[in-house]
Write a protein that binds this DNA or RNA. Structure first.
Lengths: 195, 195
DNA sequence: AGAATAACTGAACGATCGTTCAGAAAAAAG
DNA sequence: CTTTTTTCTGAACGATCGTTCAGTTATTCT
């Protein structure tokens, strides 16, 4: 056999990326074989190489795509004037964005060590860029006297780490609604930087 | 050749665990082969099976040992009367304990998905136990009116996630001393639960 | 209609994987 | 010293890995 009925790169391409994303998140990059991904898509392993030059590029593109989506989405959020309101906006955005794509988030944090040196540097740069946006809010809050933060660099990472934690436990069928989760975290974030 | 000069299980055993810990943390469980671990120890792959029934047990014992060490160490910390002081004690303990064993911490968080179902349940139970100790402090603080926390379950996870973040950036040669790191995090933790 | 292209199969490549085991050498016990 | 036990080697097992490629079929183009 060869080309199959209804096959098309516009369909197979995305399906490969979706399958790889899910499998990488579930079992880890190193533990997932190209044959497993192919099986999920309903294709032979060799067919994957019409869509990616190799397994490493598949991982990198998933991670780079996620980081780009994150930055683009955050850039599109209208910014309030006060640092406090901007931080509140960030808290809600970050929680919701991350809860909507748990697999991509998981990969972006867990598979860094499976990137080549060059690819790692690219992803790290994208991450730092995002973090700098948060630190700018904290700096603004310090300048305007709205916040009291001993170290804005550490506080940036602390706030992000705290919010990222939501992905480890939140379940949509769980005790708390998304609005409640957001409210609880905002209460803690807001106080942690308050004067 | 066969048994080598100076070989002894009291020496080889720990060296295998140390090598496995470092390699698992660096490259991930699935990406590390038994032959790599053996090479690090200076032994053939077959020799590892005098010390572990299989690769999975090697991982599990590293994780279970780490969680047991964590609980034991925390249990040994003298507890103050007030919830605020107990929380301060926890913050310092948790930061220092985690910074002293970055590899074990990394593995305990990243390799959960590579555990068998049964082993996973054991590790999760140990983790929950530790988290419950923290939540007890927050509950006590609420009862005594020292804290104002919308949800002690979420707050527990938020505080721990925030503190865990220190492992991703702290370097002993870096800008901040251990005492300064502890002070910065305590400032944020303390305020995040304050009334 | 036929020609060109896009998409995929199926087999194969050498490499590496976790694990087992008979046998050999060093250390400990007698 | 001799015997027993501990520790490790070196080879081998079948399985699976990422990747390549000639050939085949479906789709698109002319």
């Amino acid at each position: 056999m060869a080309r199959t009925q209804g096959s098309h790169s516009d369909i197979t391409g995305p399906r490969i990326r979706e399958a790889a994303l899910r499998l990488f998140a579930q079992h880890g990059y190193a533990a997932v074989s190209m044959r497993q991904i192919a099986k999920e898509v309903g294709v032979q392993a060799g067919a994957l190489y019409n869509y990616t030059p190799d397994k490493q590029s598949l991982l990198f593109n998933l991670m780079a795509g996620h980081m780009a989506d994150l930055q683009t989405a955050w850039d599109a959020v209208p910014q309030a004037d006060s640092a406090l309101e901007r931080l509140r906006g960030f808290t809600g955005f970050h929680i919701r964005f991350h809860l909507e794509r748990p697999d991509a988030v998981f990969i972006a944090y867990m598979e860094l060590r499976n990137l080549t040196e060059k690819n790692f540097a690219v992803i790290e740069s994208l991450r730092r860029n995002y973090e700098n946006g948060v630190e700018d809010i904290l700096k603004q809050g310090m300048e305007q006297g709205e916040f009291d933060i001993p170290d804005t660099k550490v506080a940036t990472l602390a706030v992000i780490a705290m919010l990222n934690g939501v992905n480890t436990w939140y379940r949509s069928e769980g005790r708390l609604s998304l609005d409640e989760v957001e409210r609880v975290y905002w209460s803690m974030v807001q106080k942690s930087v308050s004067t």
